[in-house]
Design a protein around this nucleic acid. Structure first.
Lengths: 334, 334
DNA sequence: TGTCGAGCTTGCAACGTTGCAAGTGGTGTT
DNA sequence: AACACCACTTGCAACGTTGCAAGCTCGACA
């Protein structure tokens, strides 16, 4: 049972308020009183009760990062960046995972019951859209991450997916590839990422005057290795298989790579592969993976900064910030 | 500004207490009162204040999972398992990352100021040892994960590292390999994992009557891909390079694999590799990775169960539970 | 008509902390 | 000796909620 201020006060023979003054390092405390109280604090091993303090102060020093999947390397790496950013501002980050389940997303983000423990929220939604998010009952500030288009109303950090996808595709075109496939298209309107990247892919082909072949655009349910492996197998089963593939993230690319190699295809000689996200795995695969690298540190920095501004009372209209990205050329297209 | 019970009570023309009764679904409320209060709740979009509730009830429904590194796939996968387990018991898990930094570990685990927000803690320490942990001022129950040996005093879930490492090494011996190396030894006494696995490795060689070659045991600072890649390069530079390597985790193995393949070595023909942890990456590498698979679901289940027991008032002496593991043979040793 | 109890509602206090403003005692000044 | 002022200390209330036990109203029953 942890000691309370009252117990410390009794032991030191002072008022509760004075103990609080010592704990909070108020200057107006006589040196010997301070020493006596400090002694009592140490004797009892006093630790402030964070819950009571939060209730009283209205601030917990905790911000929540809510992500679809922690075991997707991109999110794990992004998490690291956010934690580092928040730490410099004295905030602790706690992370939670939704699996893109709308119910869980609702519960974590919308309902104050859990969220209210935190001063702010950085949220990468999969299922929840703008309409859902607009009228949250809670007043906890939120910063959104990711591609899901939210029509105004909230701060939002993303990268220009269409342009980035176009860049990736153009890279394959510049290699001289003729049949360029895409893995990761998505029909479900709640999953915007796939659609935006398909737009970029399409735009690049069109600009290059290349024909759009529908069966070369493979949808996948998720963005996991298994999806990439399966989609690649379908592509290789076509009468005319592709000689390059733009995978909408690195996991898809790693799955696709596995399929190619296990069939004896050479990458990049027979088939070039490019991914998206620049996760560490892609730097150590053989061949290593060409990819689009979003500036995760920048995303984290903006997200935390924006949130802190809101916490500090910034009432300016919601911003939409586009983070940088670049093309990293490695062995899989070299 | 979220509505409070008081505001709802005024609007509905009832007492604060009655509103609380409605919110908490107490049966003793007249139907029309309930309806009137419910209307007011809806009108104002009332959400209970989690902090006040926690202060009053003494329970937050939150448990914290404190891990060294979230972007290490093993931990990310373990996290998923813990979240799933806790969810079935109605608890929400929040995760934090220490980087194995003793200061951060202290702060998160020992000092009540942050920890006190949570009902319990599941903690995988790197730096903190038994002595540090024994006399925590906080009364929040803790369950420990991982290899770091803690001399009694706290519940602890681990796997038998020595036996598991011996199993891995024996597998390589059974393949008929003659020069078996090890990557991941650690001198630092706060990093027990490496030492335990070296013990198992040594025991297996000794049992098989094989000679112990010191330069085949490579220490690494961390257990990351880069460490594995570097250590492998050193091994290959030896006058007599190994024909098999036991890497103390899958990341090391993936790094080692990368080095081997980039030098044109065939795996497993020229050199066999085995890892540890069974992370997803190892299932999609080429060749896929033979590994020791700890039963993560079991670890998570025990950890959450033990913690919930403590929360329910279980006062029995601390347990040490050994989770299961098995050998998964894939292409890298086939 | 008075009493009882069921059914429903409420006030008070407390969880542990801190903001506010007032309080205490002692010292220095005139 | 009276007063002002300073340095320090304190009591009260409040943050929003819920446990406890008491309170109220009303109908039923004798």
């Amino acid at each position: 049972m942890p000691a309370t201020l009252r117990e410390v006060a009794e032991r030191a023979g002072v008022s509760v308020r004075t103990v609080s003054n010592v704990v909070n390092d108020f200057p107006q405390v006589a040196p010997d009183t301070r020493a006596r109280v400090q002694q009592a604090l140490d004797d009892l091993g006093y630790q402030p009760n964070a819950v009571a303090r939060t209730l009283r102060r209205g601030r917990s020093g905790l911000i929540a990062l809510v992500l679809p999947e922690l075991d997707v390397p991109y999110f794990a790496e992004l998490t690291r960046a956010v934690i580092e950013q928040a730490a410099t501002a004295g905030y602790t980050v706690v992370v939670d995972q939704t699996d893109g389940d709308p119910v869980r997303e609702q519960e974590l983000v919308m309902r104050g019951n859990r969220a209210a423990m935190f001063d702010g929220l950085i949220f990468n939604p999969l299922a929840l859209g703008g309409a859902d998010l607009r009228d949250r009952p809670s007043s906890t500030p939120v910063v959104l991450l990711g591609e899901r288009v939210v029509q105004g109303g909230l701060d939002h950090i993303m990268i220009d997916n269409v342009a980035a996808a176009e860049l990736a595709t153009r890279h394959l075109i510049d290699l001289g590839r003729q049949r360029i496939a895409a893995i990761g298209d998505q029909f479900d309107e709640t999953r915007q990422t796939g659609q935006l990247r398909t737009q970029g892919y399409t735009a690049a082909l069109r600009t290059a005057g290349m024909e759009l072949v529908p069966e070369l655009i493979r949808p996948t349910e998720f963005f996991h290795r298994a999806d990439g492996a399966a989609a690649m197998a379908e592509l290789l089963a076509l009468p005319e298989p592709p000689d390059a593939v733009f995978c909408y993230n690195d996991l898809l690319a790693l799955g696709a790579l596995r399929t190619c190699l296990s069939r004896g295809l050479r990458v990049p000689e027979d088939i070039a592969l490019i991914g998206f996200d620049d996760i560490e795995d892609g730097r150590y695969s053989t061949p290593s993976l060409t990819t689009i690298r979003p500036d995760k540190a920048q995303i984290a920095k903006h997200a935390v900064q924006l949130l802190l501004n809101r916490l500090a009372g910034d009432e300016s209209p919601p911003t939409e910030i586009a983070a940088d990205y670049d093309l990293v050329i490695r062995e899989s297209t070299r």
